[in-house]
Every structure is written in C-alpha cells, then in structure tokens.
Nucleic acid binder design. Structure first.
Lengths: 125, 125
DNA sequence: CTATATGCAAAAAGTTTGCATCTCC
DNA sequence: GGAGATGCAAACTTTTTGCATATAG
C-alpha cells in the first residue's frame, strides 16, 4: 500500500483541517513509519490535483482537508472541536463575482472561511 | 523619530500589501539602518492594535497593509500586481451570520479574501 | 539609573530538497 | 537494471527570541 493511501485515510478520518505535521503524527501513531517529507510531497501532489483543500492558518501553517466535491465550496469550522462542514455558498459566489467585476477584476477566485463555536462546544449551552 | 514611524511610512507609500521583508528592504533602501527583528516586532504590535491588516500569501508569507478603517472589512486582491482594495461586505457579514446560526454556531468570525486579476493585469485586456 | 527601543545573531517552526535505498516492473 | 516511491537529514525561508547596547526620562 502506498503512503498516498495513508495520507488519504488520515484526512478522511479527520474532523476538520489537519496540518501536514498533524497528518504525519497521526500516521506514525497508527504504526506506519512514514517520513515528514513524504507527507509534504503527497500533500502537494494531492493539492495540485485538486484532491485536497489548502488553507493557511493564522500562524503560517498550511492545513489540509479532503475535498468532498471538486466544485467550489466553503467551510464552517468550529474553533473548539475542529468540526467542519462544507457549505455551498451561492450567495457568496455571486457577491464575490459581482464585487470583483465592479472593480474590473477577472479570473476571480476566493477564500471564505467561517469560524465559530458550534452548539456542542458553546460555553453557555 | 521612532522606527514605528518608518514602518508606518513604508506602508503608507506602498501600493498594496508588503511582506515584512519588503518593508525591511524599503526602509533600509531609504538609508535608515533598521533591523528585521524590529520590523517584525513593530508589525506585530501594529496588527495587535488593529492599525494594519495581515494577509497570508499563498506561500506562507505574511503581508501587511495599513487599515483605512478599523471596521471589519474584506479584501479584493490582484494576484498579479498585489494591489488590494478594502471592501465593506455587508452581504457576506449577514450571510455568514445566517449560515452559521443555521448550523448552531455562535461567536462567528470569518475570513473572506477575493483574489482576481485586475483590469490592468488581465492578459487579454 | 531604570525602562524602553533597537540591532544583531542565534534559534524556532514549517517546508523543501538531496541523496541513498528499496520496491516493482 | 531502471523508474518511481520513500525516509532521513540537511538546507531554506520566514518569523521569533535572547542578549547587549543605546536612548529617554
């Protein structure tokens, strides 16, 4: 079995986004002696093929997540438990497109991440 | 004069976002012997005080820009020339809030970046 | 003199690359 | 035997920290 599968499995089992180092740690915890370099190489390849989403965390770390669909979508992530849901954001798509065009921009792409505390993790629940 | 002013000036004169290293280089080019560490320290402080926006570029580098307003806003960035415009995104604010609530999320925060090619940089202009 | 600001260089953190090995064909 | 995959360690890049000096009050 290739390491590609290990990375894929780690991502599949994750609740939200994982950093390369997280994935590395998870796979090794599972008893598979993978190397950090391999994880990065695989992640790059998967990102290039559009198999995973890449989002830079606030502290400069890249985090990855399996794309459920190749279609464009956004995420709603719980800051406490890391649970993430993919959202189909038609409104935002159109808004982004419109605003960009107003300013003369083309080939528009965008990143939208909504971070919140989910019901389960809310302090005053 | 404090180095804070040098950094502020560098940002003020910049067309778009500058990385810490850019700022460092610019100030030194101007003849002022500032240190990289000072630039980072100042930038951190300014960001903490909400004086500058911080946006992570695709390759993990943080870029900074003076905030025109302290209110929440988003950016429209040209992927070619780096020119960025601040947007007031009422639609998105509300959408994010609504979607999050639908999923039972609270304390919602969000990140919205629109990247495109501006008219000036469009290939088939 | 004490506190803050600053610079230099070393240290961290995250990521990439070089190179040898190992496997599959 | 050769191509591609993999692991380890070294190299790199960006950012942070330690420490000594300089400056302000």
């Amino acid at each position: 079995m290739s390491r590609r599968d290990d990375v894929h499995a780690a991502l599949r089992e994750a609740p939200g986004f994982l950093s390369a180092q997280d994935i590395y740690a998870r796979i090794r915890s599972g008893g598979t002696p993978i190397g950090l370099a391999t994880v990065y190489r695989l992640l790059q390849a998967m990102a290039a093929q559009g198999q995973v989403d890449v989002v830079r965390s606030g502290d400069g770390e890249a985090t990855y997540r399996l794309c459920r669909s190749t279609a464009h979508h956004h995420h709603l992530v719980c800051r406490a438990c890391g649970r993430a849901e993919e959202l189909d954001a038609d409104v935002v798509e159109r808004w982004a497109q419109a605003v960009a065009e107003e300013h003369g921009f083309t080939a528009v792409d965008h990143v939208v991440e909504i971070i919140g505390t989910c019901a389960r993790c809310a302090p005053d629940d």
